[in-house]
């Protein structure tokens, strides 16, 4: 299992990378390599050109700009885990990162790489969907932003053009008092989830749910926002019964069927994990709200 022959390019800056992307046919962008390299070794990917963007330091950052948080596409997953602003502003992503692969893969793996690989069961696309993040994309022609909801085109394929490069994601962090939970079920620690559920809840001063975000991974080809459940929760007082009942709606969602998990099992997990994620998020929201 050795990579096929390809031309290797390592642009030193963003313009260089965009120039190569505009010029080269059948090119693959090499970010952290934790998904592309296995695909190359197994010869599932057969590019003529590999454009290694690891030298482009300007793509690795975590930046607070106004009310928004911006993260460079080449920020390593392990650096994100340790990022002080992220830990403060987005505990959901930090909790999800702890379930992404293993330390050695997080040392190399990047946020942008995971988003572009877009494995249906990967954790970080679920987080991006939960946060209503915006994906920043650049090409020689200029830049554009894509809402995470529009980012997946189809199975494991983002809605970007061959000459475009994902450079960053940005989102508006939820206020400090919100509760969060990222709960997944994987066969072994560090495996891709069979199903993952991300929940964020914000409570009003009266203790009712004033804002909710519920997202599933692993059920379809792209992260699935559960808008129906979110709406159902608004204005309600949180309780185990409420969350269990709301989560039951996920027993009816469309879910994939493959040799590793049936539709029925994915639906069951979707309901079960949604309930657990909501309960945990609610508990944390209650702890965080100043008495």
């Amino acid at each position: 299992m050795k990579p096929p022959p390809f031309h290797y390019h390592d642009p030193q800056d963003l313009d260089g990378a965009l120039d190569l992307l505009a010029r080269l046919e059948n090119a693959k962008v090499l970010a952290g390599g934790q998904s592309l390299m296995p695909m190359l070794n197994m010869r599932f990917a057969l590019p003529d050109h590999v454009i290694d963007i690891n030298a482009i330091e300007s793509l690795a950052f975590v930046r607070e700009s106004g009310s928004r948080l911006e993260i460079g596409a080449m920020t390593r997953q392990h650096d994100l885990e340790r990022s002080a602003p992220l830990r403060r502003l987005c505990p959901l992503m930090v909790e999800a990162l702890g379930q992404v692969g293993h330390r050695a893969t997080r040392n190399r793996g990047t946020l942008g790489g995971s988003l572009c690989h877009l494995d249906p069961a990967a954790e970080l696309p679920v987080v991006a969907a939960a946060l209503d993040a915006t994906i920043q994309v650049k090409s020689k022609q200029g830049g554009r932003s894509i809402a995470m909801a529009d980012f997946p085109a189809f199975y494991m394929t983002p809605a970007i053009e061959p000459e475009e490069l994902v450079t960053a994601i940005e989102f508006e962090p939820w206020p400090a008092g919100h509760g969060h939970a990222f709960i997944e079920f994987a066969r072994r620690h560090g495996d891709f989830a069979i199903v993952a559920a991300a929940a964020m809840l914000e409570l009003s001063p009266e203790g009712t749910i004033s804002r909710a975000s519920v997202t599933l991974g692993g059920v379809g080809t792209a992260p699935l926002r559960c808008h129906g459940i979110e709406e159902q929760l608004l204005g309600q007082h949180g309780s185990a019964a409420l969350f269990r009942e709301a989560a039951e709606a996920n027993r009816g969602i469309d879910a994939m069927d493959d040799v590793h998990a049936s539709t029925l099992y994915r639906q069951h997990l979707a309901a079960e994990l949604t309930g657990r994620a909501l309960a945990t998020a609610f508990e944390r929201a209650q702890e965080r709200v100043p008495a």
Partner: peptide, 21 residues
């Protein structure tokens, strides 16, 4: 599969127990 084609050909699909299991 039903045609005797292997559907598990890597360590991400064939699960060896690890230190956490």
């Amino acid at each position: 599969d039903e045609n005797a084609q292997p559907v598990v050909t890597n360590f991400a699909e064939y699960l060896l127990p690890t230190a956490t299991e």
